[in-house]
Design a protein around this nucleic acid. Structure first.
Length: 826
RNA sequence: GCGAGAGUGGUGGAACGGCAGACACGCUAGAUUCAGGAUCUAGUGGGCAUUACGCCUGUGGGGGUUCAAAUCCCCCCUCUCGCACCA
C-alpha cells in the first residue's frame, strides 16, 4: 500500500453510527405515496428471549428484498411485530416468578434491539404485539365476526389434550400423536370446547390453492393432503329386523356388490344398541373398552394389528338384499366419514387382511379386462380399476363408469347419495390457559351464551393473577374476571375462561400492519386494499399447514364479510431453509449453537448478513461455517480497501478516453449489475448475486494491479458507485459509509437502483469453443458476430484442429454463433 | 406404502441442452513480515504425461434421445421432508 495511511473497516463503529442515523430520521417509515407498492413480510417471531440464526436468516432475506424494491421505486411496507401470547411466558412466570407480560415485554425489548443491530429496515411505527389489548381487542372482534357468521360454535367433542401444557390442542397441532410444542403424548378427552368452522371453507381452501402459483409446490401439496378431499358415496345399510340404518362412506361405490361384512368404530353410537341384552354384550364391551384406551397414534398406525369382534347383528346390503355380519373393529375411526365401513375384502387391502384373519367371505366384483379373478386365488386385494362382475345388471361395465352409474342407481332408489368428505376437521380454538386472548363470551343464567358486545371490547386479561404449577387455568380461578353482568339482561353472568389458540392472533396480523394504529376498527378496507395481499411472505416450512392454512381461512372470512378484497393473504411464499451446523440442527444440547450476537460482535451485522445469504440459496438448508463467515468478512474488507484507496482520486476531472483496461473494468461491473438485478428480482438467488459482486471486485483488483494510481478517475468513480449501490441492500451499513466517502450527502438507500449499460457489455472479440465429435479440441478468438462460414474457415486453418482431422471426413458442422463450432467427423 | 425434493471436487455451492466445478472455504507455493497474523500473486476434480495451454476420465448407478446431456426420457439405488389403516 506504499506507506499510505489506510483507515480500517470498523463495523463496530460504523454500524451503530448508521443505525442511530436511521433511527433519528425515522428512516424506514412507510412511504404511502407511490402507486407501485410492495408488501414484504417475514413471519413475526415468538418473543422467546433472543434471536437465533433462523431469525437472522429470514430477516436478512426480507431486508435485501425490501431495500432492493425501494431502490426500484416501490413504496414498500416492511413491518415487524410479535406473536406474543403463548405458553412459554406462563412457564417462565411459574419458574421465575415474573408476570407473563413482564417476561414477554422484556424479551421483545431484547429482540427488537437485536433486529436493529442487524440493520433491518422495519417501519417500527407499525409494530404490533398480539398480547397488547389494543391488538387483542381486534382478535376478539374477529371472534365475534365469526360467531355472527355462524363460524364459531361450542360443542362437546373428543379432543386432543396435552397434560403437560394442560390444555387442548387443534388437530393440526398434534404431530405424530404428540404435542407440537412440548412433545408430550396427547390423550383424548371429551370436553365442551369452542371451534371455528373451517370445514365450511374446505372446498375453497382446496380450490384456491390453484391461485397460489407463487408458493412452493410442496407447501401446496401438504395443504391439499391436509384438507384431504375424497369423492364417493354415502350408502345406507339397514340393520336386519330393525328400522336402524348404518350409513357408510365409500370412495368405491362400484364395489358395492362385493360387500361381505360391515365394521363399526368402537365409538359408534349404534354399537351399544346392537349388543344390549345379547350374548355378545360382554365380549364386545370389553373390546370397545380396550380399543378406546389406545391413543390415536397407536390406533392409526399402519402397523397396528387389525382386530375386530362380531356384534351378533346383521345388516342388509341395499342393492342385493344380502345380509352381512356387523363387527366392531379397531381400524375404523369415528372421526372420519360416518364411523362405519363396508367391508369389500376383494378390493381393499385393509378389508382383505381383516377378512383373511377372521375368515370372512371374499367376493370378487371387479376383474381386469378379459380375465376373471377367483376369490380363492387372491393373495392380495385387487384395488385397480377393471370391469364389473357378479354385480347384477352392472356386469361388464368399466369400474370408472360404474362409480357414477351405481351412485345414480342408489339415489334413484333412495339408498344413498353422492358424497364428498374431507379429512380437515373444524379448528378447535379453546385453550385452558391464561396468556392468550380471552374469548369474548359470557354465560348468563337466563340468556345462556351471550357474545360480549363490540363496544365493550376488549375483554381484558386480569393483571393481578397468581400463576401456579398444575391445576386449572388462572382465569377460571379469578373471581374478579369471572363475575360479570349479562350484556343482554344485566343479570348475573360468568365469563368464558378459555382463551383463544394463539394461531388466531397470527392469522390476521398482516392486515393490522396496513392500519396498525386504528382504534376504531381492526383496519379499514381502504388501507387493507392498498397493501394486501402480502406480495412476498417469508418464513419457515414448519408453518406449511398450521399458520398458513389458518391465515388463508381467516382471510376468506374477512373477504366474505366485505373487509378486504384479498381472497388469499400471501401471493408469493418463500419457505426458507434451516440453519444447521456440522450437518445438524443447532441446539444447546449439541453445543453447536452460534448466536447472531456473537457474529455481530466479532464481524459486524453486514458480514453476518452477507454470509448467511451467500452460503446457500434461501430455500435450501444452510450449514453454518465459521470459516465461511471469515470469507465474507474478508470480502467486505476488500471492498472497503478498494473504495478507501480511490475515494479521493475519483473526484479528479479527466478528459482521457477510456483504454482497453478501463473498458474491461466497466464491462465487469455492468455485467455484475445485470446478474445481480436478475438474481434478486427473478429468482431470489442472493448467493449468486453476491458471487457476481465478488467477481466484479476481483476484476477491480486486477485493474488496480495493472494501473496502480494511474487509474481513469471517471471509470473508477462509475464502478465504485455501482459497487456500493449493488452492495447496499446486502450490507446496508457499509453501503451508507462508503457512499458517503464517495462524496455523497443523501443516503445510499434513497438512490435508484442503477441500470446497466448495454453498450458496456459489448465485446469486440469472443472465444469460440471448437469441438470435434462433441469433445473440446480448441478455442478460437474471433470478432463478435462473425458469420458461420468465416468461422468455419478459421477453424479449419487452426493447427490444433487440423491435427485431429487428419484422415477423417467432415460429415456435418454445427455452429452456434459467437459460442461454439462442433465438427462431426468420421 | 404414498407424495414431494435432492444426489456435482476435501467443503459450501455454480452452470438458457453448448467449455462441468463460477464464487467462496480449505490446501500448496511465492511476495511482504524479525516472526505470527493480515494482505497480495499464482496454482488447486481425478489419472497419465510434462516434447507440448497434450491425452484419458469425471456430475449416485444403468440404459436411451441428441452433433452435443449435470441438464430431457425410462429403470434402479441412496438421502431428506411431508402424509400414512382416511374407508
Amino acid at each position: 500500500m506504499g506507506g499510505r495511511m489506510v483507515a480500517d473497516y470498523r463495523p463496530e463503529i460504523i454500524e451503530p453510527k448508521w443505525q442511530k442515523y436511521w433511527e433519528e430520521q425515522n428512516f424506514y417509515q412507510t412511504d404511502e405515496k407511490k402507486d407501485k407498492r410492495y408488501y414484504v413480510l417475514e413471519m413475526f417471531p415468538y418473543p422467546s428471549g433472543r434471536l437465533h440464526m433462523g431469525h437472522m436468516r429470514v430477516y436478512s432475506i426480507g431486508d435485501v428484498l425490501a431495500r432492493f424494491l425501494r431502490m426500484r421505486g416501490y413504496s414498500v411496507l416492511h413491518p415487524m411485530g410479535w406473536d406474543a401470547f403463548g405458553l412459554p411466558a406462563e412457564n417462565a412466570a411459574i419458574e421465575r416468578r415474573v408476570h407473563p407480560a413482564e417476561w414477554t415485554y422484556a424479551n421483545i425489548e431484547t429482540m427488537k434491539k437485536q433486529q436493529k443491530a442487524l440493520g433491518i429496515s422495519y417501519d417500527w411505527e407499525r409494530e404490533v404485539a398480539t398480547c397488547d389489548p389494543d391488538y387483542y381487542k381486534w382478535t376478539q372482534w374477529l371472534f365475534l365476526l365469526l360467531y355472527k357468521r355462524g363460524l364459531a360454535y361450542k360443542k362437546k367433542a373428543a379432543v386432543n389434550w396435552c397434560s403437560k401444557c394442560e390444555t387442548v390442542l387443534a388437530n393440526e397441532q398434534v404431530e405424530d400423536g404428540k404435542c407440537w410444542r412440548c412433545s408430550e403424548e396427547v390423550v383424548i378427552k371429551d370436553l365442551e370446547q369452542w371451534f371455528f368452522r373451517i370445514t365450511d371453507y374446505a372446498e375453497r381452501l382446496l380450490q384456491d390453492l390453484k391461485l397460489l402459483s407463487g408458493w412452493p409446490q410442496r407447501v401446496r401439496i401438504m395443504q391439499e393432503n391436509w384438507i384431504g378431499k375424497s369423492e364417493g358415496a354415502q350408502i345406507r345399510f339397514t340393520v336386519q329386523n330393525s328400522q336402524k340404518e348404518i350409513p357408510v362412506f365409500t370412495t368405491r361405490p362400484d364395489t358395492i356388490y362385493g360387500v361381505t361384512y360391515m365394521v363399526l368404530a368402537a365409538e359408534h353410537p349404534l354399537v351399544e344398541e346392537l349388543i344390549a341384552g345379547t350374548e355378545y354384550e360382554t365380549e364386545v364391551r370389553a373390546f370397545v373398552e380396550k380399543t378406546r384406551k389406545l391413543t390415536e397414534v397407536t390406533r392409526t398406525s399402519a402397523e397396528m394389528e387389525k382386530e375386530g369382534v362380531f356384534t351378533g347383528a346383521y345388516c342388509i346390503n341395499p342393492v342385493n338384499g344380502s345380509a352381512v355380519p356387523i363387527l366392531v373393529g379397531n381400524y375404523v375411526l369415528m372421526s372420519y366419514g360416518t364411523g362405519a365401513v363396508m367391508g369389500v375384502p376383494a378390493h381393499d387391502e385393509r378389508d382383505f387382511e381383516f377378512a383373511k384373519k377372521y375368515n370372512l367371505p371374499i367376493r370378487v366384483v371387479i376383474s381386469p379386462e378379459g380375465t376373471e379373478l377367483k376369490a380363492e386365488d387372491l393373495t392380495e386385494a385387487y384395488v385397480e380399476e377393471g370391469v364389473l362382475i357378479n354385480s347384477a345388471h352392472f356386469d361388464g361395465m368399466p369400474s370408472e363408469q360404474a362409480k357414477e352409474e351405481i351412485i345414480k342407481y342408489l339415489e334413484a332408489n333412495g339408498w344413498g347419495k353422492k358424497e364428498v368428505t374431507y379429512r380437515l376437521r373444524d379448528w378447535l380454538i379453546s385453550r385452558q390457559r391464561y396468556w392468550g386472548t380471552p374469548i369474548p363470551i359470557v354465560y348468563c343464567e337466563k340468556c345462556g351464551t351471550v357474545p360480549v358486545p363490540e363496544e365493550e371490547l376488549p375483554v381484558k386479561l386480569p393483571e393481578d393473577i397468581e400463576m401456579k404449577e398444575g391445576g386449572r387455568s388462572p382465569l377460571a380461578q379469578c373471581e374478579e374476571f369471572l363475575a360479570t353482568k349479562c350484556p343482554d339482561c344485566g343479570g348475573k353472568a360468568r365469563r368464558e375462561t378459555d382463551t383463544m389458540d394463539t394461531f388466531i392472533d397470527s392469522s390476521w396480523y398482516f392486515f393490522r400492519y396496513a392500519d396498525a394504529k386504528n382504534d376504531k376498527a381492526p383496519f379499514t378496507r381502504e388501507k387493507a386494499d392498498a397493501w394486501l395481499p402480502v406480495d412476498q411472505y417469508i418464513g419457515g416450512i414448519e408453518h406449511a399447514i398450521l399458520h398458513l392454512l389458518y391465515s388463508r381461512f381467516i382471510t376468506k372470512v374477512l373477504y366474505d364479510a366485505g373487509y378486504t378484497s384479498a381472497v388469499e393473504p400471501f401471493t408469493r411464499l418463500l419457505a426458507q431453509g434451516m440453519v444447521n451446523k456440522d450437518g445438524a440442527k443447532m441446539s444447546k444440547s449439541k453445543g453447536n449453537v452460534v448466536s447472531p450476537d456473537e457474529i455481530i460482535e466479532k464481524y459486524g451485522a453486514d458480514t453476518g448478513r452477507v454470509f448467511i445469504l451467500f452460503a446457500a440459496p434461501p430455500e435450501k438448508d444452510l450449514d453454518w461455517s465459521d470459516r465461511g463467515v471469515e470469507g465474507s468478512y474478508r470480502f467486505l474488507n476488500r471492498v472497503w480497501r478498494l473504495v478507501d484507496r480511490y475515494a479521493g482520486a475519483v473526484q479528479a476531472k479527466s478528459n482521457k478516453a477510456p483504454d482497453g483496461e478501463d473498458q474491461e473494468l466497466r464491462r465487469a461491473f455492468h455485467s455484475a449489475l445485470k446478474k445481480v438485478t436478475e438474481d434478486i428480482e427473478e429468482r431470489f438467488n442472493f448467493n449468486t448475486a453476491i458471487s457476481a459482486i465478488m467477481e466484479a471486485v476481483n476484476a477491480a483488483y486486477s485493474y488496480q494491479n495493472i494501473k496502480g494510481d494511474n487509474i481513469h478517475p471517471g471509470v473508477m468513480k462509475e464502478v465504485l458507485e455501482l459497487l456500493v449501490l449493488m452492495l447496499a441492500p446486502f450490507a446496508p451499513h457499509l453501503g451508507e459509509e462508503l457512499w458517503q466517502r464517495l462524496g455523497h450527502q443523501a443516503s445510499v438507500h434513497l438512490q435508484s437502483w442503477p441500470e446497466y449499460d448495454e453498450k458496456a457489455l459489448q465485446v469486440s472479440e469472443v472465444e469460440i469453443v471448437v469441438q470435434i465429435n462433441g469433445k473440446v479440441r480448441g478455442r478460437l478468438h474471433v470478432p463478435v458476430g462473425l458469420d458461420k462460414d468465416a468461422v468455419q474457415k478459421l477453424v479449419l486453418e487452426e493447427g490444433q484442429i487440423a491435427r485431429h482431422l487428419e484422415g477423417k471426413e467432415i460429415v456435418k458442422v454445427i455452429s452456434v454463433p459467437d459460442k461454439l463450432v462442433n465438427l462431426v467427423v468420421r
